[in-house]
Design a protein around this nucleic acid. Structure first.
Lengths: 138, 138
DNA sequence: CTTGACCATGGACCGCGCTCCAAGGTTTAC
DNA sequence: GTAAACCTTGGAGCGCGGTCCATGGTCAAG
């Protein structure tokens, strides 16, 4: 059994974060001391690690709540979890495409620019940004 | 000269957004009617388009403010603008790498999962998410 | 038995980019 | 002349994932 500070340290978060997760019904202490101190066990640590890892996969806290509910739910099956992972993958890929579009738009700007000391009223980047985004390319 | 609603329509934003941009010192009306109505000109439209296009390149409103300041500033040169674009590109690429890591982490989860009807206590995805993220790969 | 580190609660606040609302004035179309 | 559509200001609220603060109780070391 650890106190909140100890769990925070081993899990790599802050005590405030753990209290926040508790308000969000993601992790709750295994017990409390008579004085009201939260006490956590190894299961709590696994749960916090679950949250952090899922976050690294792009899941929001609300989605992690869903995943944790599936784990509790005797009715749920592995395919349900897999389905959430696949949906998340699709959204991550959508974001990737958006960022890739940004990256190549920036490339175009940078490439079109001399980068010399000319005044900014001649700057090709500033001119390009002003063009109607709805108009055709070029 | 257009009213706020007309500029909003042609620029593809809402009047609320234009008022918000004005509070953020990004776009201000060219004039006001005696009754206090905002009036915009073609330069305003170009400015709003600048903002939208720069947003599509990943610039935040604060950064767009910087870009617009450079345009005003007689001292600034094209190289300053180019430098902001390059910095932005680096940050976009960093985000891309983060998302690519998410994408392949999700791939691993999905690949490792049968996706069959087995109970969630056997789910390889849920087990994988519980593992210590600091531990070496497996 | 005091000092300092730790813990509790409740609530405010952050950044970001809007979005919506209420209460009222103005303009336009018929 | 009246109704609809538009405009004004000021301020609150949202989603997200925390972070920080004030105030006060608890616990361990010396």
């Amino acid at each position: 059994m650890f106190t909140i500070g100890r769990l925070a340290t081993v899990a790599g978060v802050t005590p405030d974060t753990l209290r926040f997760y508790e308000r969000e019904r993601l992790v709750s202490p295994a017990a409390k001391t008579p004085a009201g101190y939260r006490l956590y066990d190894a299961g709590s640590l696994r749960r916090v690690r679950f949250i952090r890892t899922a976050q690294h996969c792009g899941f929001s806290l609300a989605e992690i709540h869903e995943l944790l509910k599936l784990r509790q739910d005797g009715e749920a099956c592995c395919a349900d979890v897999r389905s959430l992972a696949i949906q998340k993958k699709l959204r991550v890929e959508q974001k990737l495409r958006t960022l890739q579009a940004m990256s190549s738009a920036l490339d175009d700007l940078i490439r079109g620019c001399e980068g010399d000391g000319s005044r900014t009223d001649d700057c090709s980047i500033l001119h390009a940004l002003e063009r109607d985004p709805e108009a055709g390319a070029t």
